[in-house]
Amino acid sequence: MADKLVQTGDELTIADRTFKSRLFLGSSKYPSFDVMVQAIEAAETELVTVAVRYMNLEEPEHEGVLDYLRRLDCQILPNTAGATTVKQAVRMAHLAREATGTHWIKLEVIGDERTLWPDTAMTVEATKILVQDGFVVLPYTSPDLVAAIRLEEAGAAAVMPLAAPIGTGQGLLDWVGIRRIVERVTVPVVVDAGIGVPSDACRAMELGVAAVLVNTAIAQAQDPVAMARAMKHGVIAGRDAYRAGRMPVRYEASPSSPVAGVIQERAEHAAPWRAAP
């Protein structure tokens, strides 16, 4: 079952909570809630996002996503997805707190419908308000350094730059931007949205991000449970590699095998580009 790949003493702390797993999951787009639960277990995830919406009173449901998640030992992170103004996002956050009982909020304020790109100014403003209101705010942001710095100044508990637009699976489009944020903010950096395959998650973790949040890449895989497990290994590999410290990039080759004592050819058979010994 649970492997021992996660190194002890390398827990991630966000606000008042500590996580062993650096893979966060969304709860959307799974073939069923049962598959979602199996994927969460396979990923060994300890934080799962949800959304809040108007209830359809004509079609009351017996079991919702919250019922399934409450049976697991994981932090629930409601989001403000769908919000396009500060007021709307703040209101959704308060309703989410009332509905879920958690004061954690994934803040999304979208500024463009086609790309679902976050609106930086509004996200910063909403962060300030929600921090005042006692929330642990994890804002969704672009891979823009100054946006991340402003969010940290506004009191965000973590910053969550996108790898690529939500639901696209395009992977880590601006790894330099993500790396810049990692180097400059002190709160945890969580790459959120756009991860397509475990190598994307691994690459993000290699850059030193604290965690990745994945939804569509797992939920819409042909086998979500197998992809959840693969994503976990990607995250663990990337984290271990970051901690191990990567080698510097060189511009020219450096032989791995000894250069002395190479078996020689007769001069007339030697490669023409080689200088005569």
Binding site: S27, Y54, A81
Partner: peptide, 10 residues
Amino acid sequence: VEVIKVVAGG
């Protein structure tokens, strides 16, 4: 009156 529930989300 507004009644809000938790749904699956990313």
